[in-house]
């Protein structure tokens, strides 16, 4: 399991650099890995792969639908394509291609959606996916991963490279808070317990993991013991961890950089209602489109903050 670093602070390594390094490591072991881009290789950070493996790098230009379909066709011949685009275009724009060209025919395509939610920042509403997890959850068999920091890539990319199927990874491409110590390893499909507690459990993914840890500290000052789970795999959801949290904490707060409809909060609440129904509150975007701003501004704008999680936790505990 991944262990917390002693000193959580903004990383010196960009997420995209860590991703590409992990992908190159896998590609050195597996000659079938290919990179497919749709004119954002510079943005998503795959350029080092092009230098290392030019014969295995394909930039299609601005044609996500074709790029996804072509990736599916390549996988039929044994290749393992990793397709990259901004999350909105990687999923929403090419949804039918993901659904029918990839998943319906059980082909082997890896989809990387950059700039999830508010991390799209000043690219604004057109580029800000609050719905990508919801869409991908509807694709039968798809795996959905959202890493919290750079250390998680090794496990995530290794899983994607070595397991067959349609996998979606949503990720910020810039520097993010370093949560885990070097060498931390993760099991895809198993939540990572970052703090134990008995009064409430905060289940978070991506950038919200850091906010969840801060919220737990604030709650601790109020005498409330909060468990924190990094639910880096949204599908398949670690329902065992959710049921255990429900039984042992009796109140659940989810925190996601996504619409609360269809995302992590929905997935957790579905698991709770079918297993151990306890009060739950969902922190996330509610019935809104994205807009421009810094990530900090947008996190406050949409309530994606430690304070937002604390408020939700207090409300949730009061409903016990």
């Amino acid at each position: 399991m991944g262990r917390l670093t002693d000193n959580i602070k903004l990383d010196t390594t960009e997420m995209r650099a860590a991703y590409c390094e992990a992908l190159i490591d896998e590609a050195k072991k597996n000659k079938n890995i290919v990179v497919v881009d749709a004119d954002v290789s510079h943005s998503v950070g795959t350029e080092p792969f092009y230098r290392e493996f030019p014969e295995r790098s394909i930039n299609c230009g601005i044609m996500e639908a074709h790029a996804i379909g072509m990736s599916a066709g390549m996988s039929e011949t044994g290749l393992v394509p990793f397709f990259h685009a901004f999350g909105v275009f990687a999923t929403r724009r090419a949804f039918d291609q993901i659904f029918l060209s990839c998943a319906y025919q059980k082909l082997n395509v890896k989809i990387i959606g950059a700039d999830p939610g508010v991390t799209a920042a000043t690219n604004g509403g057109t580029h800000m996916p609050f719905e990508d997890i919801g869409l991908m959850r509807l694709v039968p068999g798809a795996v959905i991963i959202e890493p919290a920091d750079v250390t998680m890539y090794k496990s995530a990319v290794s899983y994607m490279a070595n397991n067959y199927g349609v996998h979606y990874l949503r990720t910020s491409r810039r520097k993010t808070m370093r949560i885990y110590e070097d060498g931390a390893e993760f099991v895809i499909g198993k939540a990572n317990k970052l703090a134990d507690g008995k009064d409430v459990c905060i289940i978070a993914s991506g950038i919200m993991v850091y906010e969840a840890l801060k919220a737990a500290d604030i709650l601790s000052e109020k005498g409330i013991s909060a468990r924190v789970l990094d639910m880096h795999t949204i599908k398949p959801l670690d329902t065992e961890a959710v049921q255990a949290a429900a039984k042992e904490c009796g109140a659940i707060v989810t925190a996601e950089n996504h619409n609360v409809t269809g995302g992590l909060g929905s997935a957790v609440c579905e698991a709770l209602s079918e297993g151990t129904p306890v009060p739950a509150e969902r922190v996330g975007v509610k019935e809104s489109f994205g807009e421009v701003g810094t990530q900090d501004f947008l996190q406050k704008r949409f309530g994606l903050t430690a304070d937002g999680i604390v408020a939700a936790a207090l409300k949730c505990i009061s409903r016990k």
Partner: peptide, 12 residues
């Protein structure tokens, strides 16, 4: 969608 899929097979 078929032409993109076929193109992928050809590329592969």
């Amino acid at each position: 969608q078929g032409l993109s899929l076929g193109t992928g097979v050809a590329m592969g």
